[in-house]
Amino acid sequence: MGVVVRLFAVALIVLYCVGPFIWQFITSLKPSHELTTLPPLLPEDPTLENYLSVFRTHPFGRIILNSTIVASLTTVLSLAIGSLSAYALAKLNIRGKALFLAFVLSVSMFPPIATVSPLYLIIRLLGLRDTWWALVMTYTTFSLPLTIWILTNFFRAIPNEIYLAALVDGCTPFQAFRRVLLPLALPGISATAILVFIFSWNEFLFALTFTSTVKSRTIPVGIALFPGIHEIPWAEISAASVIVTIPIVVVVFMFQRRIIEGLTAGAVKG
């Protein structure tokens, strides 16, 4: 392949992936009267008004806070619960490992729509409707398969002798986990944490069903139900989209290798 062809291909791929975001960004800078005139492409009178209004006239700050809290709690819980199981599956002598792993994998294929209605009834019964906990509980469960799967692979990759050495040195199985295995699986933990965070940050169906007010509404629902008076407020939606996309872009660029590691650990070894 010639250098020119290669460069052209790279440019094409990059444009394909990034193009829609650029347009979104451009839109977010346009004052509302410019939205309805297409040439020119670029805003003639760029403004940050849309960004301000996302926070001023809409409770977007609170929505972002909800998402951050829900995603963080989910990540912590899922890692705490999942790493214990993964450790047991990788290093301890328990029966029915294969069965448990098979079950874990099948949970990852559950269609969310299949559990949303009974979960809704359960959550209503528990009085958890429109709370963070309804989402945290659900997201933790549905991110557990990924967590367990990736971390089991990471724990398995740690030589068994290291685990045995910890036992001989006087550790209980839990101490061996906390003091030796867990620190060694840190790359896996962070890869998993990023994936779980992204999953919870993006989830829509459960969030749409379990939340009803701004008290617990998360970003995807906030954007999907963005209120407009007559017209759809495209410029504000664009601004809100840009706001929530930026942290993701930052995470992706910072942890690109980790994310791919996690995804492939999840898929290739499966």
Partner: peptide, 30 residues
């Protein structure tokens, strides 16, 4: 009894040093 209750020490073929700890911490671990 569990290994720690038996109070034995073991040296492994691969040494099984804890990769994330310094020499001091490795020796101090037990």
């Amino acid at each position: 009894l569990s290994p720690s209750e038996r109070d034995v020490a073991m040296v492994f073929q691969s040494y099984a040093l804890y990769p994330h700890m310094t020499v001091f911490e490795n020796i101090a671990f037990p």
